[in-house]
Computed example of a mutant assay.
Amino acid sequence: MNAPALYELLEYSLIGLLSGGVLALIALSFVLVYKGTGVVNFAVGEVMMLGAYLYYTGNVIFGLSPVPAFVLSLLLIALLAVLIERLVLRPLAGQSAVSVLMATIGMASIIHGVVESFWGSDTYSVPPLLPRRPLNFSEVMIPGTAIGNFAVAAALIIAFILFFRYSKTGIAMRATASDPVTACTLGINIRFAQRLTWVLSGVVGTVAGVLIASSANLSPLLAATALSAFAVIILGGLDSILGAIVASLIIGWIDAVTAGYLGGKARDVVPYVVVLAILVVRPYGIFGTRTIERL
C-alpha cells in the first residue's frame, strides 16, 4: 500500500473510531434502561432529539451561553424522565414486557409530535458546543468536533463505569438490575433505583443529541440516528456496557471506511451485514449474557 492510500485509510479509521464515541453514548442510553429494568426503550431517539431542541432553544432563542443552555437541557430531560417513570411506567409494573415496550413506542410518537408542533420540521443550525477547528497530522486531517465529541463521550463513559463500580448508589443499581427481589430484601429502594436508571438514560441521550446537533444540524430526523445504536447494542449485547463501547467503535470504524471507499448508500447496508455475520456465531452479542434454558 502506497503512502497516500495508507494516509487515507488512517484518516477514515480515526474518524470512524472517534465517531464511535458518540454512538457509544446512544447505545449506553439503551443499555442502561434494559440492564436496569429489562425494557428496550424505543423512545431514546426522541428523548435525544428533544434534549437537542431544548439546548437550541436556550442557546439561540433565549440567548444563554452554551454551558448554561446545555445544563438546562439536561435538567429538563431529567425532570421529563422522572415524570415518565412515575406517570407511565410505574403503573405498568408487573405487566408484560410487550406492554412496556409499546408504552415506550407511544412515548416516542408523542415526543416526536410535540417537537414538530413547537419547532416544526425545518433544519436549524446549532452553534457549536465544542471547537470545530480541524487537526492535521501530516497528511491526515481530523475534524475538531470529532475529537471533542469523543473526549466528552469517553469522559462520561468512564465516569459511569466508576459510578457503577465504586459508589453505593451505583452498586445498589447493579444489585437491583441483577436481582430485584433480593435487592429489596436487603433494603434497597427499588423504585428509586429504576427511576434513576431512566434519568441517567435520558441525560446520556441528551448529551449525545446535543453533541450531534452542534456538530451538524438539528431537525426531527435526529431521532433516526438512534436506529444505528440498535446494531451496536445487538452486537455488543443488550445488557453489557462494555459491549456497547466495543461494538460502537467497531460499527463506527466500519461505517466510516465503508462511506469513504464505497459511498453513502453502502454505509446503510455493510455495517448491518457485518453485525448479522457476527451474530450467527455469537447470537447473544460479543459480551451479552447467555441465557441457558433446560427442558
Rank of each mutant, 00 (worst) to 15 (best):
Q95E: 14
I110C: 07
S178P: 07
I61E: 11
I245V: 15
G264M: 02
A175M: 10
G148V: 14
V270I: 13
S214T: 15
V100F: 00
F230E: 04
G170W: 03
T123G: 01
L101V: 13
A108Q: 06
V115R: 08
D179K: 13
P283M: 14
V281P: 01
V60H: 03
R267A: 15
R267I: 02
P131H: 12
V152L: 10
A183Q: 05
L54M: 11
V152N: 05
E11A: 09
T258Q: 10
I245P: 07
I157W: 04
G144F: 09
A177V: 04
G187I: 12
M107H: 04
V71S: 09
R133Y: 00
Y55Q: 10
R282C: 01
A97N: 13
L76T: 09
V199A: 07
E85L: 05
V88Q: 02
L64R: 05
M49T: 11
P220W: 04
N2G: 14
A5Q: 09
M173F: 10
Y284L: 06
M102Y: 08
I142F: 05
T289F: 13
L76E: 04
L227Q: 05
M49V: 05
V140W: 03
W198T: 14
I254L: 02
S13Q: 02
R267P: 09
Y166V: 15
A224T: 15
M102Q: 11
A224Y: 11
T104S: 05
L79M: 04
A146G: 06
L18Q: 02
L227M: 09
G148L: 04
A216L: 13
A97G: 13
S167L: 04
L156P: 00
L6T: 07
P134C: 07
I234N: 00
R133W: 06
G236I: 12
L211Q: 12
A27P: 06
L89T: 12
L10H: 03
I161H: 13
L80Q: 08
T37W: 00
V210M: 05
M48F: 14
V152D: 11
P127N: 06
G113A: 01
A244G: 03
A78F: 08
V88D: 07
